[in-house]
Write a protein that binds this DNA or RNA. Structure first.
Lengths: 252, 252
DNA sequence: TCCTCATTGTGCGATATATGAACAAATGTC
DNA sequence: GACATTTGTTCATATATCGCACAATGAGGA
C-alpha cells in the first residue's frame, strides 16, 4: 500500500463524527477540536462539510448531527446478512424463553448489538442494534473473547477499562482468562449481575459451517425472577437449539 | 462560507460508505466506483482509508464494512436526547396497547426510526432504530409531512418515488396533499395496508412546548386482528395520552 | 496456451487541502 | 468598563490529494 493510499481528510472527518458520541449532542468548533485533537481550522472544515451535506445542522455556534448520519451505520446493518438472518431466530428464542434475546459481534474491547428481540425492558440501559457494552463483563462478550487465541484475548483485556460495575464484576485478568477457558470448554457463559445489579444473562457462540465463531447470542433475565443458578437449565437448551439451527445457514 | 470550507475527500468518503447500503455487503473497487460515480483511484483511496482505520475489511478483492462503522450512526442515537426520552413512553404505550410502538423523524423523503418497543413481529421487514421507510405511505410519515408548510411537502413528494406497494397505496400527489390537510386538522394519520398487506398503523405528532413537531409516534397492528376502522377508537386515546405526557418534557 | 475483457495498481502534473499564525469577535472576570 | 481569555475566521504557503493515462494482473473462453 502506497503512502498516498490514505485520505487523511476523510479519516479526520470520521474522527469528528465520533466526537459527538462521546459527549452531548451539540459541539462547538473548539469543543470538537479538543475532543479530536485536531486543529480548529481543520475541524471547522469537516463540520461545515457535514452541514453542507445535511449530516449536521449548524446554528452559527453549535453543530448537531442530523438523522441522516444514521445512514452510515445502517449501511452495515442493511448490507450484512447476519443481522437479518439472526432476527427471526431471536424472535422465536425470545418468545419461547419469555425473555429478551440478543445477538452481537466483537469490535475491539466492546460487543456491538446487531439484532435483538426484546420482551419487557429490564435493564436501565436501552439496547438496540448498534449499542455497545464492554466485552469483559457481558455474557456475549465472554463467549466472543473465549473464541479468540489467548494472546489476542489478553491483548484486548489489556486495552479494556476493567471497571467494578457491581460487587460481582470480575476485573482480575487472570480470573477472566481462566473463565474464558471454561467458556471455551463448556460452550456457554453466564453473567450473574456483573454488569448491572438485578440482571443475569447466558450466552452461546454462533458458529459458521467451518466452526468459526461469527457472533454470540444471549438471553437476559431479571435476577429476581431467574437466579443465576437456574439460567443454565432453563435457557441453555433453547440457546443450543438456536445455535444448531443457525450453523448450517452460515456459510463462508 | 468560503469555497475552501469544504473537504471533498471527506464528502467522497461518506458517499463510499453509503454505497454499501444500497447493495450487498461486499464491494469491489470497480463496483464502488460505479455506485458512487467517483473515480476508481479516489474510491480505492477511500476504501483503503476505511480499512486502515478498521471501519472495513479488505481481502485483496472485496471490501466489507465492519461493525465499527456502527459507531458513526450510533453517535447520533447516543448524543440525541430524544430517543432516550421517548423510549420509556413507547415501552408503556406498547404494553398498554399490546402492539408495537415506534418513534421516528423525517429525513428527506424517508422516515427514520429512532426508538421502538416491539411486541411480536408482524411485519416482513425488520425495523430497528436507524431503519427507514418511505414517508408518503407510512403513518408517521404522513404526520411528519403534514407538519411542514405545504410547498415543502409538495417538494418532498416530487422527490419521492411514489410506488404502489399494495392495491391500497395512495400515490396521487393531490390525494396525498388532501390527506395531509386532514391529518393536520384532525391530528392523526391512519394507514390501512398501504405499505404492506396485513398491516395497519396509526400515528400522532410529538410536539415540543412551542408546538413544533419534532417527531412522530405510532402503533402498528395486524389488520387481521385490528381492522383499520377500529384503530382510531382503540389506540388514538393512548397515543394522545403519550403525546400529552411528552409535550412538557420537550423544551427547545 | 494464447487471447480478450474486465479489473486493479501506479506515477505524475494540476489542483485542492491542511497548517499555524494573525486577526476579529465574543465571552467571561475583576 | 477595561482586561484577559476563549472562540471563530481568514490567509499564505507547504503539502497532500485528484483524476488521468498507462501498466499490471487475473479470469474466461477458444
Amino acid at each position: 500500500m502506497h503512502e498516498t493510499d490514505f485520505v487523511s481528510g476523510f479519516a479526520r472527518g470520521l474522527k469528528v463524527i465520533e466526537a459527538f458520541g462521546e459527549t452531548r449532542q451539540r459541539l462547538s468548533i473548539a469543543e470538537a477540536s479538543k475532543l479530536t485533537e485536531l486543529d480548529r481550522a481543520t475541524v471547522r472544515r469537516s463540520l461545515l462539510t457535514l452541514a453542507e451535506l445535511g449530516y449536521a445542522d449548524y446554528d452559527g455556534k453549535f453543530f448537531t448531527l442530523t438523522p441522516k448520519i444514521l445512514r452510515l451505520g445502517h449501511a452495515y446493518l442493511a448490507a450484512t446478512p447476519l443481522p437479518a438472518l439472526l432476527q427471526p431466530h431471536l424472535d422465536l428464542l425470545s418468545e419461547r424463553a419469555g425473555q429478551s434475546a440478543s445477538a452481537s459481534v466483537l469490535d475491539g474491547t466492546e460487543i456491538v448489538y446487531i439484532a435483538r428481540a426484546s420482551q419487557r425492558r429490564v435493564m436501565s440501559i436501552n439496547l438496540t442494534p448498534g449499542s455497545r457494552l464492554p466485552a469483559y463483563c457481558a455474557s456475549m462478550g465472554r463467549v466472543l473473547l473465549a473464541a479468540l487465541p489467548e494472546n489476542e484475548t489478553r491483548a484486548i483485556l489489556a486495552r479494556s477499562e476493567l471497571k467494578q460495575n457491581t460487587p460481582n464484576t470480575k476485573i482480575d485478568p487472570e480470573e477472566l482468562v481462566a473463565e474464558f477457558r471454561r467458556v471455551r470448554a463448556e460452550g456457554y457463559a453466564i453473567i450473574d449481575q456483573e454488569l448491572e445489579i438485578g440482571l443475569c444473562s447466558i450466552a452461546v457462540p454462533i458458529e459458521n459451517d467451518r466452526g468459526q465463531t461469527v457472533a454470540a447470542i444471549n438471553i437476559g433475565a431479571p435476577a429476581a425472577l431467574v437466579p443465576a443458578a437456574e439460567m443454565k437449565e432453563r435457557y441453555l437448551p433453547l440457546l443450543k437449539e438456536t445455535q444448531a439451527a443457525l450453523r448450517p445457514l452460515l456459510r463462508r
